[in-house]
Simulated assay, not measured.
Amino acid sequence: MFAGAMALCASAALANDKIRVGLSSDGLLFVPAFVADVMGYYEEEGLDVELTILGGATKVYAALVSGEVEFSISSSVSILRGRAGGTDMTMLGAAMDQHASNIVATRQWFEKTGLTRDSTYEERLKALKGITIAVASAAGGSAQLVRFLAGEAGVDPERDMTLTVLGVGDTTLAAFARRRVDAITHSSPVAVQAIREHDGVMLFHMSGGQVPAYNGFLYLTYTGLESWIKEHEDQTVRFLRAMQKAHKAIRDPATAEAVRDKVHAKYHARIDDALYADAWADYASAFPASIEINGEMVDRVNELAAKVENADPVLPEHVAASWTNDYAAEAAKGLNAN
């Protein structure tokens, strides 16, 4: 199946193949794609990769389905739903295996509730009753996360909590700084910035695996269309090999700082050095050492998504068709992913 791919990868005369990768933003969630660029891993694999920032997950899915991009880094839940809806979107590897949005509380609220840095998960859940918490949208991922935690705590999110829709970025941070909310749900660097600059305290460290249900959860995946992949198996393996190299570089203490600084300089120079270092450290362990996936991981996504969204799970035949590890496994050959 992959003999052609191996021969192509070994050829010094290999011409670079053009590949477009769709991303919803240039945020830190997509760091491996940037690492593969600045470290030259795409070029090593004979690929000319264009990272296309499309401004939202919906636009990424549309671009993938229409053929405007060959690959994307996308939510595993959305790919499952898309497959059930009739597309041939296919998960090819694990890009991130922790939830990206941390929950940061104001120190005033945190201490008022009697919490300390050593408080257990259960104690933190009990404190949620009466909280006012900022979410990006009324029905989006951050709101679903808060409602899930409310369920874990045994409180009614509509009656016992106030979810305030503030969008993302500066608006959320400003509300937090002015103490108009008790907590925010946001990815880094905003979550880290709330702690560093506005006296925030980590309430639920999602990217660090603090919430058991989401610890090791297949959050983001490398995704392509099955129809395209089957006609371009060699390019698929080479793309995933570049991503596996990126994951290894992020987690390797010998290369991590140099890799971070290169990505910062090219993609995120607008972010303060110290803040960037903290945000990078917050996410580094959320990019798994191996990008390989398996059925147990995908089944877990299906089960948790159904619970969080209060929806029926995706049917087993759609789940089985929604992923493959063949290409990631081939890409990992000869590379030390540990």
Rank of each mutant, 00 (worst) to 15 (best):
M6T: 12
L8V: 12
N16T: 11
D17K: 15
K18L: 13
D26T: 14
D26Q: 14
L28S: 05
F30E: 01
E45V: 01
L47W: 01
D48A: 12
G55I: 09
K59Y: 13
V60F: 10
A62W: 03
S78K: 13
G82N: 09
G85K: 07
G93R: 00
D97V: 09
I103N: 02
L115E: 09
K129P: 00
T132R: 13
V135R: 00
A136S: 15
G141N: 14
G141S: 13
G141L: 10
Q144D: 11
L149K: 00
L166D: 07
G167I: 13
L173M: 13
A174I: 11
F176S: 03
F176Y: 06
D182L: 04
I184Y: 01
S188P: 15
V190P: 00
A191S: 15
V192S: 15
E197C: 07
V201H: 05
M202V: 10
L203M: 07
L203S: 09
M206K: 06
G209P: 06
Q210A: 14
Y214T: 13
T221D: 14
T223Q: 08
G224Y: 00
H232T: 11
Q235L: 15
V237P: 01
M243E: 02
K245A: 07
H247Y: 03
A249D: 09
A249K: 00
I250W: 05
A254I: 03
T255C: 10
A258Q: 14
V263Y: 00
H264R: 15
K266I: 02
K266L: 07
Y267L: 09
D272F: 05
L275D: 06
Y276N: 04
Y276M: 09
A281P: 01
S285L: 13
A289N: 12
E292S: 13
G295S: 11
G295I: 04
M297Q: 14
D299S: 12
N302G: 10
V308Q: 04
P313R: 03
V314M: 10
A329Y: 05
A329C: 05
E330Q: 11
K333T: 06
A337W: 10
